[in-house]
Computed example of a mutant assay.
Amino acid sequence: MAQGPFDGKTILITGGGGAIGRATAKRFLDDGAKLVLVDVNAQGLEAAASDLASPDRVQTHLSYLDSVAAAEVAVEKAGDGFHALVHLAGISLPDPEDYEDLDLFDRTIAANTRNAYALARVIERRGLGDASDTFRIVLASSMAYRRGGLDRVAYSSAKGAIAGMVRALSRRLAPRVHVNGIAPGIILTPMTEPIIKRRGDDLAREIPIQRYGRPTEVAGVIAFLCGPDASYVNGQIINIDGGTINS
Score class of each variant (00 low, 15 high):
residue 115 N to I: 12
residue 64 Y to P: 00
residue 67 S to D: 10
residue 53 A to N: 13
residue 247 S to R: 09
residue 178 H to D: 06
residue 172 R to A: 14
residue 187 I to Q: 05
residue 82 F to G: 02
residue 116 A to P: 02
residue 46 E to S: 01
residue 143 M to G: 07
residue 153 V to M: 02
residue 247 S to H: 05
residue 198 R to F: 07
residue 99 Y to F: 07
residue 181 G to W: 13
residue 207 I to A: 03
residue 34 K to I: 12
residue 213 G to T: 06
residue 225 L to P: 07
residue 80 D to Y: 03
residue 196 I to N: 13
residue 52 L to R: 15
residue 226 C to I: 10
residue 12 L to N: 14
residue 43 Q to S: 15
residue 231 S to I: 06
residue 80 D to K: 14
residue 31 D to L: 08
residue 244 T to W: 03
residue 33 A to M: 14
residue 176 R to F: 00
residue 120 A to C: 14
residue 41 N to D: 13
residue 225 L to C: 10
residue 13 I to C: 09
residue 228 P to I: 11
residue 114 R to E: 08
residue 205 R to Q: 14
residue 20 I to F: 10
residue 18 G to L: 13
residue 129 G to Y: 11
residue 12 L to F: 10
residue 163 A to W: 00
residue 166 V to Y: 03
residue 169 L to H: 00
residue 128 L to P: 02
residue 183 A to P: 15
residue 115 N to K: 12
residue 211 R to Q: 14
residue 91 I to E: 05
residue 218 V to M: 07
residue 29 L to M: 15
residue 80 D to A: 12
residue 75 V to G: 04
residue 222 I to Q: 12
residue 93 L to G: 00
residue 2 A to S: 11
residue 135 F to Q: 04
residue 30 D to N: 15
residue 3 Q to I: 00
residue 146 R to A: 14
residue 123 I to H: 11
residue 18 G to R: 10
residue 93 L to F: 02
residue 33 A to C: 13
residue 19 A to P: 04
residue 146 R to T: 08
residue 84 A to R: 02
residue 155 Y to I: 12
residue 175 P to D: 13
residue 116 A to K: 01
residue 179 V to P: 00
residue 45 L to I: 09
residue 231 S to R: 13
residue 120 A to Y: 01
residue 130 D to N: 14
residue 177 V to Q: 05
residue 84 A to H: 05
residue 170 S to W: 10
residue 40 V to A: 00
residue 216 T to R: 05
residue 119 L to Q: 00
residue 190 P to F: 01
residue 11 I to V: 15
residue 242 G to C: 12
residue 224 F to L: 14
residue 143 M to N: 07
residue 123 I to L: 06
residue 230 A to Q: 04
residue 230 A to T: 02
residue 49 A to C: 09
residue 145 Y to R: 00
residue 210 Q to P: 01
residue 169 L to D: 01
residue 25 A to T: 11
residue 136 R to I: 03
residue 215 P to C: 07
residue 26 K to F: 07
residue 34 K to D: 11
